[in-house]
């Protein structure tokens, strides 16, 4: 079964993102929202980690959270709320990293 992992905490404050990448299944995806979008800042260690993970079409970021934080990255596919809902339905389950 496929899982969409939703992360909302900054990767500079804890290791949710790193842990999530360790246990990510091959058909799983990650959606970054809130402060988690800081992981997409160019030239940072979390961004390196995401690049190395090669998550083509499996990495998403909530557009308005990215815009609000001046994050402009092509690494993640930007999604709005309707697309977020559509994503949640496309996967068998959603794992929120609270």
């Amino acid at each position: 079964m496929t899982t969409l992992h939703v992360i909302s905490h900054s990767p500079f404050g804890d290791n949710r993102l790193a842990s999530c990448l360790r246990l990510l299944g091959t058909d799983d995806a990650i959606l970054l929202c809130g402060d988690a979008v800081y992981a997409l800042r160019a030239g940072t260690a979390p961004q390196q980690l995401l690049q190395t993970a090669r998550l083509q079409h499996r990495l998403f970021a909530l557009a308005e959270d990215a815009q609000a934080r001046a994050i402009d990255s092509t690494l993640a596919e930007a999604v709005d709320y309707p697309a977020f809902v559509e994503l949640s339905l496309r996967f068998d389950k959603v794992n929120s990293w609270l």
Partner: peptide, 8 residues
């Protein structure tokens, strides 16, 4: 994680 219906 893949085996469970729901995860939190």
């Amino acid at each position: 994680i893949g085996r469970y219906d729901q995860v939190v």
